[in-house]
Design a protein around this nucleic acid. Structure first.
Lengths: 176, 176
DNA sequence: GCTGTTAGTTCGTTCAATGAACTGCTGCTC
DNA sequence: GAGCAGCAGTTCATTGAACGAACTAACAGC
């Protein structure tokens, strides 16, 4: 790997992980993937990321088997989280919890619920109802108090993220 | 914040968190801070980061109150994790666990222990002995099987990280 | 085939990272 | 208290990545 992406000689799993997911935009792409975004154009329009950068990041993530490129129902390929990618959920969740805690004065912007019993998840991802650790596929993201009163969004994809959504379930903007 | 650092319009706590800690090098600086690194020169020599970038990152982290600049025993100021910074431990730990799982074929490079009872922590930070959630200050990092057999390190700071170390305890290379 | 939409690539510009050299402060020693 | 040594940061020229607008290619539906 070339100068800018790597942290050679760090000899550390944090550095190795960051070589894969630590570049600018990458964790936001993965966040969107957990939200159900799967298509190139949806990532591009929601993130407002330069298409060349998105193309490069998706290629890297597919090479690293964090995402898989699979045929989609529309005839175009889609990008799907692999098991390896899905296991980054805890990282995304912890970053969200930290951002909510320190940068959202009105309270959390998102509340995570256990789909099975509607229990609220704590910052560790444990269900306040049944006490279980909840996998991302069993998690529902709902708007929290920190997001109330904000103006509605023009972007249909961004607007869909204001509704309760099951994590990992593919989103189709035309179906939102 | 200017073009490169921010993710304006993301309306999301993950994006907000990444504006603060998502820049290149920042999470590695924080990892070192958890390891006990507190001085400018120690960060610079261990990370092999350009000094100008380190200076810029430390300034940002102090402004955001992730680190605090405090007078050190040597007469020089030191950089210390605040409570806000310490609460990023889970993010660093999850990244380390992910890197260990997928990029360390010989097993984890680091094992985390509960200082109170030497119980091994699972990937969630729970002690396998007493079952408690272990705070970073009560955690000991020890070399794991994934790091065995690697050549010893020239850099005295890097070498010190191959020894068991209490998280957050200040490291002085001359005392290592 | 023609039209519109989606998925990328190309390319000139802008801005951050790099690394080496330099400045200035701290503390020590004589 | 002058001189010396090491530490903390800044400066600056160079390199390389991000940006964004425009372009090309592929497929879908008619």
């Amino acid at each position: 790997m070339a100068p800018r992406t790597d942290y050679t000689g760090q000899n550390c799993s944090v550095a190795r992980a960051l070589e894969v997911v630590g570049e600018r935009w990458t964790l936001l792409i993965l966040r969107d993937a957990f939200y159900g975004v799967r298509r190139f154009g949806d990532f591009a329009s929601h993130l407002e990321i330069p298409r060349a950068v998105l193309s490069s990041r998706l290629r890297t993530l597919v090479e690293e088997e964090v995402l898989a490129r699979v045929p989609g129902p529309s005839g175009h390929d889609e990008y799907e989280l692999t098991e390896k990618g899905t296991s980054l959920w805890t990282v995304v969740r912890e970053l969200m919890a930290w951002g909510d805690r320190y940068y959202s004065p009105g309270g959390p912007r998102r509340i995570l619920l256990h789909a099975a019993d509607d229990g609220v998840l704590d910052e560790m991802g444990r269900c306040g109802g049944c006490g279980e650790l909840v996998a991302p596929a069993d998690t529902v993201i709902t708007p929290g108090p920190g997001i109330a009163g904000e103006p509605p969004l023009e972007n249909p994809l961004a607007a869909a993220f204001r509704e309760p959504r099951r994590v990992l379930r593919p989103i189709r903007p035309e179906l939102a």
